[in-house]
Design a binder for these strands. Structure first.
Lengths: 231, 231
DNA sequence: CAATTTATTATGTGCAGACATAATAATTGT
DNA sequence: ACAATTATTATGTCTGCACATAATAAATTG
């Protein structure tokens, strides 16, 4: 008779079910790992794996000694996949292309300097229009710290966009991403081929390698754009 | 000579360092788990834990038999914490309050019906203004499937917002979140106290329990709002 | 030589046991 | 009664081993 081996996934599913069926309600203390292991006839490590996953997903709160409870205010964690623009476009089944509009090494404005800090050489300023088919898809405004990535100055960005080039050639350790909405300025509106003032989705990203800023970029998407995720 | 016990975190940090230092470049095949275990003098399970984590974070690509490579196009996973609105406001150090503007059981418009499907009873329509201090913070438009949560009809939503009430009283299993930007309509502008056409950040959320839609909600944030995350 | 079958191998996961750690509960001292 | 100390306990993690699984490489077959 069966005696099928329990996997941590099946346990994850079962606990998940008990929560979503209301058997274990928010705030409830659930049985300890040893008890669950006994109930399901598996090792404690397996239970741990399943519960750890559920905790990471925000369904459970776990604390040593105190035990495991069903999350009271489930801080649900939405995971967004941030990939390179070409992929984003191609995954929607369209043909990707890009055009470098501006490319100049010059001193950065104050608000950029504040983030990037002092640099030896002047940063590189790049603006790029990314297209899906023949239509504008996203307008990218980027500052690159040339101290950190000197050879970007000689890079051929006609075939590969700055976006992709940096991902493959620059080193980075951490980043910060901010999502917001803004009204299109005259310049942005013209480039994205929309009316001035149209609401556009903005992604601001700062990328570091260790303590140093590598690049600061602002992505302005066309109005139809939306970012979606399941939880 | 130390002989300090290796933890999976330390291993995670070390591999992470080797990648960000460029020792292992994008596309490179890194040593197998057994080799790394030997190098660091720990069990393979420990190496596995560290590498699994790095893969989940998008830094590594792992495939059975093929081995582990540094991600070529690091699909970075940005994790956003979606908590209840009261928390969001309070965490920014402001006083939270809310006002239920409309509350009526009525048949849903087509685009809502399409998502919610057929229901026995008419859904509940709720609009709520969430405030930070005395200022508008977010305007919520919600449809609740009363088949799934019948007692929402009798709920007191003056103390607790629909948002919170549902989190604690309704069962849910999965959800879908979509982020976008939109120009404020006349009605929205008036409620949020901004000019018509102002760009606002929109979050659309659909929540299921099993195959059934529990609630559909649209959150329109004031222009200053931004959502941020580190990766 | 192409197509199919059969090894091979790196990762994925399970188990039992041990110790570590953090948080709580119980105890002790003043 | 209160503070400081000492158990206690549930989770966290490491180890060493075993077998499962998926993907590739090698061998076999027509």
């Amino acid at each position: 008779m069966s005696a099928k081996r329990i996997t941590w996934q099946s346990l994850h599913a079962e606990v998940s079910r008990r929560i979503s069926d209301g058997l274990w309600k928010p705030g409830d203390l659930i049985p300890g790992e040893v008890d669950l292991a006994a109930e399901f006839g598996c090792a404690r490590a397996t239970v741990n794996r399943a519960l750890r996953q559920l905790a990471q997903e925000g369904f459970l709160d776990r604390r040593r000694k105190a035990g495991t409870r069903v999350a009271l205010h489930p801080v649900r964690k939405a995971t967004l996949d941030i990939s390179i623009t070409r992929r984003e476009v191609e995954q929607s089944g369209q043909v990707y292309s890009h055009k470098t509009l501006r490319r100049k090494q010059k001193s950065a404005p104050k608000h950029i300097q504040n983030i990037m800090g002092e640099t030896q050489a002047a940063p590189l300023y790049l603006t790029t229009l990314h297209q899906a088919g023949k239509k504008p898809f996203m307008y990218e405004t980027r500052w690159v710290n040339t101290d950190m990535v000197p050879n970007v100055l000689d890079a051929d960005l006609t075939q590969i966009s700055a976006n992709e080039w940096l991902v493959e050639n620059a080193l980075f350790s951490k980043g910060e991403i901010t999502f917001s909405a803004a009204n299109a300025s005259d310049a942005e509106a013209k480039i994205l081929n929309v009316a001035t003032g149209t609401a556009i989705f903005i992604i601001d990203r700062v990328t570091w390698n260790g303590p140093n800023v590598v690049t600061i970029v602002r992505l302005a998407y066309t109005p139809s754009f939306q970012m979606s995720t399941k939880i």
